[in-house]
Design a protein around this nucleic acid. Sequence first.
DNA 1: TTGTATGCGTTATCAT
DNA 2: ATGATAACGCATACAA
Lengths: 352, 352
Amino acid sequence: MEKPLATVKKATIYDIARKVGTSAATVSRVLSKSGYPVKEELSRKIFETASKMNYSTNMVGRMLKKSESKDIGVIIPTISNPFYPQVVLGIELEARHMGFNILLCNSFRDASTEKKYIESLYQKQIRGLIISSIDENHLFLKEMQENGVRIVVLDQGEQELKCGKVGFNYIQSGLIAVEYLFRMGHRNIAFITSPLTKRSRRETLEGYKLAFLKKNLAIKEENILAAQTEEESYTGTYEFENGRRLTKKFLELRERPTAIFAVNDMTALGIIHELLNNGVRVPEDVSVIGFDNIEVSSMINPPLTTVNQPSFETGRLACKLLLDSMDGREAGDISITLEPTLVERKSVCRKG
Amino acid sequence: MEKPLATVKKATIYDIARKVGTSAATVSRVLSKSGYPVKEELSRKIFETASKMNYSTNMVGRMLKKSESKDIGVIIPTISNPFYPQVVLGIELEARHMGFNILLCNSFRDASTEKKYIESLYQKQIRGLIISSIDENHLFLKEMQENGVRIVVLDQGEQELKCGKVGFNYIQSGLIAVEYLFRMGHRNIAFITSPLTKRSRRETLEGYKLAFLKKNLAIKEENILAAQTEEESYTGTYEFENGRRLTKKFLELRERPTAIFAVNDMTALGIIHELLNNGVRVPEDVSVIGFDNIEVSSMINPPLTTVNQPSFETGRLACKLLLDSMDGREAGDISITLEPTLVERKSVCRKG
DNA sequence: TTGTATGCGTTATCAT
DNA sequence: ATGATAACGCATACAA
């Protein structure tokens, strides 16, 4: 009961060879399905004995010998933000389809953790890396690249590394969100956001402003409510709370806007929550539009009108790009930008 | 532009040894921080050259030699169900703390996918496995175990494998949920659930029934609304939709219950959604209590009263159990059952 | 068609 | 304190 496992030694191809009365080379050729010609009868016997001996390939041995792995690393900020699991699923689907496995890591938007994971993955001889990074780790990534590791960056904007890139058109997202509100008759529109420390947020704001510019409408600076405190924002809870907090400010605005554009869905949830708490009806009194289109957005009341950011597709494309660049079927430095689409639900209504 | 990477050969300890004018053995001793005595001066020079040559340990080589890895496999149904990322985070926290990395896999509740992943992880020489399985894979898992792989199963109930176990007290969960509704004055209480194909769901129902029994109240079978169709339930969307669907049935009940106990939070969201859609107020007309306490439950209106299932803690404990059993600091077959707690929010009110 | 021998990068044993 | 060498498990070039 104390030492329940006697750690039986695992069978190797040598053990099988001995048992069958052949050489390890032949066993390897059969078991690795190399296609190398081996007598039907012998082959059968090898398979049989392998199974009888509970043989299981030692991938470490194989990897060392072939010095090529079937692993690709994936580094995301956090699995807790409901956006990323979808991305990961897209990656995994594509990867598994091509016989690759993924090694998933959460960087928690922490530069040192991120670096540690990059290094660790590199040491594990990954063949490719898909990363949604915060740190501009050119140096190290570049070195990996020179050693044959393909890299695709997610959502990275100003990245000088020459590698695959999959990103979003945030400006366009801001634009179509606000233009939709315009079409619904709104003119006085607030923008509520987490700190403008990320390019994505800044660009979304740009899109917001661009919409006003295109319509020759003045932008009221007091309508732009951005958090100042740079708190950790990986749990969704922060975004939600931030939405609530800024909504309190929103409610104090002298000329209360008739609509709010939230920097992401989680923030929008917080906004709606606080609005409702204060007896402000959504969308009758104030319309709210979000950004991301996470799953729960369709589950709340009212179902959230939002801008879709195709998370699953992002993962799929990123992985496809990576794998294609491995066979040389594609250059390794292609940029893909995904375009947003509007998802009309019930949280926005015509003004008045 | 076509072939951007000339795949520079990576430096090995031999390369460094040559450069420094020493042996590979010494380089290994220094770089692996073995603690083996090496002249300060030489050691310094080795570190220096290693860094200059961009040396990076080849873990595959090391693993093969030492035949022990620092990896533990984790298999969950799906990363898309918001419950699991929290579990994984708990595991990762604990693992990283001990210098272990996790290899995450989504089985999608598919027995064959699950098996493939188990096998693949085994081949990668993982040191331990944490698995929330559907299939009773005793056979294979047992074999792994005999070869030294420690195993902890999550939420598995009737599992005859002798290994670590972390589970929940579902009966108790059902019990405290219903008893809370009793305390709030409710007597006519519905139970809405996904198909009763999982032990967890059946036991939750048991708890529901037990509560009535203890109070000598009759159970009305028509108040137990269970889905029949066994659909895939890994996206959360299914649970939500199922909640909506069964709520339609609920609304047709002759003597409409004053409260609903949902088998999980996602289902509760669907229930509330549908109730509200039909002009039924929550909690004024019908109270709703959920189970899981996923993050979004606090974000909806009304914030969901629910039974907390400590997801993060589950992961942490499972991993701790696993690691402890590796050093022999613990037996490998300990069972831990986590107890539920009530989370009072706003979706339940006093009857009448 | 099969077998022998070598090496992948590392660590550990044994000399020195 | 350091070095030569074998071994981990596998795949492959070469020989037979």
